[in-house]
Write a protein that binds this DNA or RNA. Structure first.
Lengths: 211, 211
DNA sequence: TATAAATTGTTAGGATATTGACAATAAATT
DNA sequence: AATTTATTGTCAATATCCTAACAATTTATA
């Protein structure tokens, strides 16, 4: 059961960024890096980097720094990238279809097993070999295909209803693109991508920029 | 010029959420709301709500609460929604095209004036009357159409180069969907939507959930 | 109209997050 | 081999953010 995490969300949200930058270093064949050097490229203070990493273990070595390959691997493991994830996309509108086409997720081990929609006209259509299926059969599909993550791309009005159905079917992780907040049981994780909120943050900053 | 903002990012990122919830109240014809009631539906503490709002002025009234319509309007103004924005989408791949189709932005006053790409096969194609144009002519278009915001949907490798071009053309606000961090002058605002980072946050929490 | 109830704006206190400093230790240099 | 340099992990100090409390004031009730 969900033991209260001692790691703050601030730290957790920085982890993927470490992972991304370490991947770039790895691609450039850089073998080692100090917190100071990493600070220069990633923009966090060296102190913060050391403290963040130390939440999970002493990956570095005094006088040397961090081994890039090892650290990349370790952070990947912390993020859960030591396993592959089966996902489905619920809502096969523009955004759902675009995400089905988005291959950046594949790279890190996410496979989209199917899209679901309520519109019969879409049933059977394939996006990159991923078939759009009838929402009515989603619960069976989730169980038979060991789906870990549901990517919710419906409109605002259907989102909660669909989320309820996903939870009933045993889904424990929802990546929510619908512009609303979902009510789910405690043991279900929801990560929101609220595009409009992001855009309004941009306009706020844009506006404040020349005041 | 960019006077140092006294409002913390934590507050700024909550504003769009207030705006969204107030819109819902407005749609339900609710005329007034107290910080306590808002707290119950939005999930922040009443104290935080009052303090957040008070950064921008005393919108409430003792013994009464807040007038929903007024507060919605005021927060909209704070977020810069008292004007319309002209935008372009740069990179007409799946994501770019999906965003061109995404009508949720229109609702709050954003108009996509054109898409741009380097692929000649796409030139002239229209998404909802929005034409895909040749990237080579982007600078002229930006100036002639008073573009405020560029929505960057290229791949990682072209992102910086394209951003440079946008900045040269006078763009001061970039909504970045490319999975990389952009280097831009101080007076250019970048708001990132790093989908992979969001997804990895989800897997982290998912994994930690049953440990 | 007088009193009670509701609710804000704001101050102060507490919690959390970030940064600075440094002893401990490894690597590099002489 | 001894000395210098680099760099971590960690503790302490600072800064930021959030919550609790309450006087001031309005609304609702008697």
């Amino acid at each position: 059961m969900s033991e209260k995490s001692r790691i703050s969300m601030a730290v957790i949200r920085r982890l993927p960024k470490y992972h991304r930058y370490l991947k770039e270093l790895l691609d450039k064949d850089i073998k080692r890096i100090s917190s100071k050097e990493l600070s220069d490229i990633i923009g966090f203070t060296a102190s913060q980097i050391r403290q963040d990493l130390n939440n999970f273990g002493g990956f570095g070595q005094q006088g040397y720094g961090y081994n890039v390959e090892e650290l990349f691997y370790e952070i990947g493991k912390i993020l859960g990238l030591d396993k592959a994830y089966n996902t489905i996309i619920v809502g096969a509108g523009n955004l759902g279809q675009a995400l089905a086409n988005y291959t950046n997720f594949d790279k890190v081990g996410f496979e989209v097993k199917a899209l679901f929609d309520i519109n019969p006209k879409l049933f059977g259509i394939k996006i990159r070999d991923i078939e759009i299926k009838d929402m009515d059969h989603i619960d069976v599909f989730i169980k038979e295909n060991a789906i870990d993550i549901a990517i919710l791309c419906t409109n605002k009005d259907s989102a909660q209803e669909v989320a309820d159905k996903l939870v009933e079917s045993g889904i424990k992780a929802i990546w929510n693109f619908a512009p609303t907040d979902l009510r789910v049981p405690e043991d279900v994780i929801v990560e929101n991508v609220h595009l409009v909120e992001s855009l309004l943050t941009l306009t706020y900053l844009y506006k404040s920029n020349d005041e």
